[in-house]
Design a protein around this nucleic acid. Structure first.
Length: 331
DNA sequence: CATCGATGTTGAG
DNA sequence: TCAACCTCGATGG
C-alpha cells in the first residue's frame, strides 16, 4: 500500500545493498520460479522507481519490475545498510518492512521509540532480533539467511543482505523495451526530475481532462506516485474541491499542485512517512511521527473538526475509493 | 479467534 | 462496475 515515497525508498535500499552484487534469486513460494531462474547469479546494475513501480536491472538486459499493489511488501534482513539520505525510525516490528503500513520505509535501528535521525549508514537490528528468537526457541542457529516467512514470491540474497518480496500485484522479468513501454505509460515523477519540462508534461495532460481533479491526481498516466492519502492532502493544501473538472483549473493552479507534490514527496522519501502538515517542530513534530492523525489534515479524519476551519471533515465514495475532504476549506 | 479493511491495479463482464 | 489478487494490522467478541 505504499505511495510513491515508499517505492523510492525501497529502490534506494536496493541501490545501497544490492547494486554491484550478484544475488541468488529464488522464489520460495514457487510462483516466480521461472523468473527467478532468469535473474539468479546476474549482477544487479541499477535500481529505479517511477511512481509506484520499481525496476531492478540485471546484467544481460533483464529487468525485474515490481508493483506492490495494496498489500505487497519487501522485508530486508541481514547486515542492512541504509541510504544516508533517508531517515530511519525504530520499528515496532521485528523486521524492516518496506511497503506495507504507515511505517513504510522502516528499517530497524537502535532505540525503541527513537525518532528519525539523519544518519550515516548503520546496521539494522534484524539479525540480533532473529538470533534472540532462535535462542528462545533453543535453536542453535544460523540467523542468516532467515527462513522464509509466509508466501515469499521472490528472495534476493547476497553475502550480506536478504530481501523478501511478498504479496506484489506485479512481479515480472522484462526486456529494456518492455520497461520503456511501462515507463511511457506513466506520467512524470518529480522525484526523478522536478523540472519545468516535467511539470509542463503534467499540466498539459491534466488540463485536457474534464475528469474531476480528485481523480486526475490518482491517474498514474497523468502524474505518477500519488495515492489516496496524498491525493486528499494535496487537494486540501491547495484549497481545491476534489470534484472540480481539471480542465477548468487555471494553469497556475496545476503548476502549484505539481510543486506541492514534489515538496511532499521529498519529505516522504526523506522521513519515511507521509507528513502532510509541514512546518511542525519539536513536540508537535514528534507527535506527527507517532500519530497519523497528527500529520494529516483530512485523511481518515472524517467526523472530526477541520484543523484549519473547524468544519466537519467529510468522507465520500469517489471513483471506488474513499475521499476525505473539508468542504469549508476546499471550494 | 474471526472478520474487516487498506496508502492499488487489472481485467472480466 | 466490481471481483480478484492474497497480506496483515486493527477491531470486536
Amino acid at each position: 500500500m505504499p505511495e510513491g515515497h515508499s517505492v523510492h525508498r525501497i529502490a534506494r535500499q536496493f541501490s545501497v545493498n544490492f547494486v554491484g552484487t550478484s544475488p541468488e534469486v529464488t522464489s520460495p513460494q514457487g510462483r516466480f520460479a521461472q523468473g527467478a531462474e532468469l535473474l539468479s547469479g546476474r549482477e544487479m546494475t541499477d535500481a529505479r522507481a517511477v511512481g509506484k513501480q520499481m525496476f531492478l536491472e540485471f546484467a544481460g538486459e533483464r529487468w525485474l519490475r515490481v508493483h506492490l499493489g495494496i498489500y505487497g511488501a519487501w522485508d530486508f534482513a541481514g547486515d542492512v545498510r541504509v541510504d544516508p539520505a533517508i531517515q530511519i525510525h525504530a520499528s515496532k516490528f521485528g523486521r524492516g518492512r518496506l511497503g506495507q503500513t504507515g511505517m513504510a520505509g522502516v528499517v530497524d535501528e537502535e532505540g525503541e521509540d527513537s525518532v528519525a535521525s539523519i544518519g550515516a549508514p548503520r546496521r539494522a537490528r534484524l539479525q540480533r532480533v532473529q538470533m534472540a528468537e532462535h535462542d528462545r526457541a533453543g535453536e542453535v542457529a544460523s540467523a542468516f539467511p532467515p527462513d522464509p516467512v509466509g508466501q515469499v514470491r521472490v528472495r534476493l540474497l547476497n553475502e550480506r543482505v536478504c530481501a523478501d518480496l511478498r504479496g506484489p500485484t506485479a512481479c515480472e522479468v522484462l526486456s529494456p523495451g518492455e520497461v520503456d513501454a511501462v515507463v511511457q505509460r506513466l506520467g512524470p515523477d518529480p522525484a526523478n526530475a522536478n523540472t519545468p519540462a516535467e511539470r509542463d508534461r503534467f499540466v498539459e495532460r491534466a488540463r485536457k481532462k474534464r475528469t474531476p481533479i480528485g481523480l486526475v491526481l490518482m491517474d498514474q498516466s497523468v502524474i505518477a506516485g500519488i495515492g489516496n492519502v496524498y491525493r486528499a492532502e494535496l487537494l486540501f493544501r491547495a484549497g481545491l474541491d476534489p470534484h472540480t473538472p481539471a480542465n477548468t483549473l487555471d494553469r497556475t493552479v496545476l503548476e502549484a499542485l505539481w510543486d506541492d507534490w514534489a515538496h511532499l514527496l521529498e519529505i516522504g522519501i526523506t522521513v519515511g512517512q507521509m507528513i502532510t502538515i509541514d512546518g511542525l517542530e519539536g513536540e508537535d513534530y514528534r507527535r506527527a511521527l507517532a500519530e497519523r492523525d497528527e500529520r494529516h489534515w483530512v485523511y481518515k479524519l472524517e467526523g472530526t473538526p477541520c484543523k484549519r476551519c473547524g468544519a466537519n471533515i467529510l468522507l465520500e465514495e469517489f471513483g471506488a475509493r474513499k475521499l476525505y475532504w473539508c468542504a469549508g476549506c476546499q471550494s
